[in-house]
Amino acid sequence: MAADAFTVEVAFALPHKQRLVAVEVHKDTTARQAVALANLSSLFPEIPSTTFEQAPLGIFGKALRHPESTTLRAGDRIEVYRPLQIDPKAARLERAKRQASG
């Protein structure tokens, strides 16, 4: 490992499958670049590769506003977030309707 290199982890999960990939990066590597280095599209061929290129990212559960410019620190865990299947407000409204009628 080069003197200015360190390891981070990139995480992605589906309901039935999860992966955590260790990636060696350098001090100026961004979160988005680390996701590209993790090559998640090869581990999740059922997901379009553009998902990983555009998905919202976070570090240890904290969403990143600018993943293209957020540089990493040793030990960071970059999380790739899946798009929501349903808007949370719509889901709450549907639950409330079901409870009111049942």
Rank of each mutant, 00 (worst) to 15 (best):
T71F: 01
G102D: 12
T51R: 05
Q33N: 06
M1R: 09
L84Q: 10
I86F: 06
Y81E: 05
S101K: 13
K89M: 09
P15V: 12
T71S: 00
I47Y: 04
T30D: 06
P48Q: 07
D87S: 08
P56A: 15
K89C: 02
R73T: 11
F44E: 11
A55T: 01
F12R: 00
V21G: 07
G75E: 04
F60P: 02
K89V: 10
D28P: 00
A2F: 02
R82K: 14
A22C: 09
V80Q: 01
I47H: 06
G61Y: 14
P48M: 05
V25K: 02
F60H: 15
R32S: 12
L64N: 10
I47Q: 07
A31Y: 03
K62V: 14
L72S: 05
L20C: 10
Q99F: 08
A11T: 08
D76M: 09
L84N: 07
S101C: 08
L84H: 09
L14K: 14
G61K: 13
E79G: 03
T7M: 08
A100V: 03
Q33A: 15
R82G: 10
I59W: 03
H16R: 12
K17V: 03
A55E: 01
G102R: 13
H16I: 05
V8H: 01
E79C: 07
Q18V: 11
S41M: 01
L20V: 15
A5I: 05
A38W: 04
A100H: 08
E9T: 10
E53C: 08
L57P: 07
E46M: 11
A2I: 00
L57F: 05
V23E: 05
T70S: 13
L20M: 09
K17S: 03
T70D: 06
G58P: 02
A2R: 08
L84F: 07
D87N: 15
T70N: 08
P45M: 06
R73K: 13
V23W: 06
G75Q: 04
H16N: 13
T50L: 12
S101I: 09
L40C: 05
L84I: 13
M1G: 15
P45G: 08
V10E: 02
L40P: 00
R32P: 02
V35K: 05
D76G: 02
T29E: 08
K27P: 00
A5Y: 08
P88V: 02
K27S: 14
E68A: 14
S41D: 11
M1V: 07
V23L: 04
A11H: 03
D87W: 03
L40F: 10
L64E: 08
